[in-house]
């Protein structure tokens, strides 16, 4: 486990030292705060707009961290960094799991920061304290990093470097669109349930009804199970890959 956390820690440090991450966070907070001024343009819908904007930006931030991971593993393989690490007593599976955990930790931390920032801005704007349903919605977004990171790791190992980020983004779009795909007649025949159903993590902001912590726990467990499946597949492929 130490080895896995050593890899996760190096991934975390890598992303922490990227200036673009801080710029991204700043942009998110500015955009959320600017929703205060929506009452000028909207018909008194600025409060739901701020909630929607915060959830969308939170989701986008998590997706961006995951997409960044799709660059990380191929880059390390190409530059020989992975080769240096894999000549230590570190299994290939441990390497992948470490990368996945590093991505999850980073995405969750960024998501939590955005959540805290949103609630501070929300409280300053409307004087309302934390609503449980909203908190669940944001934490579900953070939890969606678990299956998304696993998909990113799987695609990083499976696909050529050039197309991995694009196909990962497309796959995530499909995963977020599960309910629409399943509702359509055509989708039912093509969607085999291979992709994760990220709709499970999409707590519709308009419902404002708490689904409860048991639902949250079940969804997180589902995300972990899916990740184990995806990482097992990635490990099987990676085991036989020549590391240049």
């Amino acid at each position: 486990m130490n080895e896995v956390m050593a890899i996760a820690g190096s991934t975390w440090r890598r992303i922490l030292r990227m200036k673009v991450v801080y710029f991204l966070l700043l942009c998110v907070f500015v955009l959320i705060s600017s929703a205060i001024n929506y009452d000028v343009l909207s018909l008194q819908e600025n409060k739901p707009l701020m909630i929607d904007v915060s959830l969308v930006l939170n989701t986008l931030a998590v997706v961006l961290v995951v997409i960044a991971m799709t660059f990380e593993i191929p880059r390390e393989l190409r530059e020989g960094v992975a080769a240096t690490l894999l000549t230590k007593p570190l299994g290939r599976t441990q390497y992948l799991v470490g990368k996945c955990i590093g991505s999850i930790i980073t995405a969750v931390v960024i998501s939590v920061l955005i959540t805290i920032g949103f609630f501070v801005i929300f409280w300053l704007s409307f004087g309302e304290s934390v609503v449980q349903s909203l908190l669940e919605a944001h934490l579900l977004v953070a939890a969606s990093a678990i299956p998304m990171s696993a998909i990113a790791v799987l695609f990083s190992v499976l696909l050529p470097e050039m197309i991995t980020p694009i196909l990962t983004a497309i796959a995530l779009w499909f995963a977020f669109s599960t309910s629409r795909i399943l509702d359509s007649g055509v989708g039912k025949y093509f969607y085999g349930g291979v992709l994760p159903d990220l709709d499970l993590f999409n707590f519709k902001s308009f419902s404002m009804v708490s689904a409860g912590w048991p639902y949250f726990a079940l969804v997180v467990i589902w995300g972990i199970v899916f990740s184990v499946f995806a990482l097992s597949l990635a490990s099987l492929i990676f085991r036989f890959k020549d590391i240049k």
Binding site: E3, R13, R14, T84
Partner: peptide, 19 residues
């Protein structure tokens, strides 16, 4: 040899020591 460019020398060696 290629190492993670964002890590400091002692940080990288610490990761190696853990591994």
């Amino acid at each position: 040899p290629a190492f993670s460019p964002y890590l400091k020398a002692n940080e990288f060696l610490m990761i190696c020591a853990k591994l």
